[in-house]
Amino acid sequence: MTLFAALRLPREILFGKGQRHVLPTVAARFGRRALVCTDERFAGTPVFTDIIKSLQSASIEVLVHDRVLPDVPRDTVGICVKDAKGFRPDMVIGIGGGSCLDFAKCTTLLLSHGGKLQDYYGEFKVPGPTLPLIAVPTTAGTGSEVTPVAVISDPDRTLKV
């Protein structure tokens, strides 16, 4: 007998061409204030502009953090968290490649539980539920949109954790 199991997957996975158009409907289930994490390149595209407009048309207030860097330098997450605390988002939306999605995961974690990312290195360190996270991949390959882990670059360890 072959057993197959998947633990810690997202509750819902939408896939296929054009799924970004249902983002406002999905986001509206979680509240009316969204922190959107992406990189500068994607933030400058017409597609990103359309995504933000569609969220706003659905009465979702948006704060955009468009300074995600490749390989997620650890300390950049804290900058986003500091900027977003006053906004008090109901959800975090990561849009982009693996770094953008991992950045959004880390931001969600720190907004929900505080502390430093180093406090959460390792398995089963997250003490409880976090803010809702919506991951919108724009590339293929990392699978970050369906995994519960994030990879960041730690300058103290000079490696990715």
Rank of each mutant, 00 (worst) to 15 (best):
R20Q: 12
H21I: 10
V22H: 11
V22E: 12
V22W: 05
L23C: 11
L23I: 09
P24K: 06
P24R: 10
V26K: 11
A27V: 12
A27D: 11
F30P: 13
F30H: 04
R33I: 06
R33C: 08
R33N: 09
A34E: 13
A34T: 13
T38V: 12
T38D: 10
T38L: 03
D39C: 01
D39Y: 00
D39Q: 02
D39T: 03
E40M: 08
R41Q: 11
F42S: 15
A43C: 11
A43M: 11
T45R: 15
V47I: 10
F48K: 08
I51P: 14
I51H: 12
I52R: 06
Q56I: 14
I60Q: 08
E61N: 13
H65S: 07
D66E: 11
R67W: 01
V68Q: 00
V68R: 00
P70E: 06
P70D: 10
V72Q: 00
P73F: 00
R74F: 05
D75G: 03
D75E: 03
V77A: 03
V77K: 02
V77F: 00
G78E: 08
I79C: 12
I79V: 09
C80E: 08
D83L: 06
K85I: 04
R88K: 05
P89V: 09
D90C: 04
D90E: 02
D90W: 01
V92R: 05
V92P: 03
I93L: 02
I95S: 01
G97C: 06
G98C: 03
G98E: 10
G98H: 04
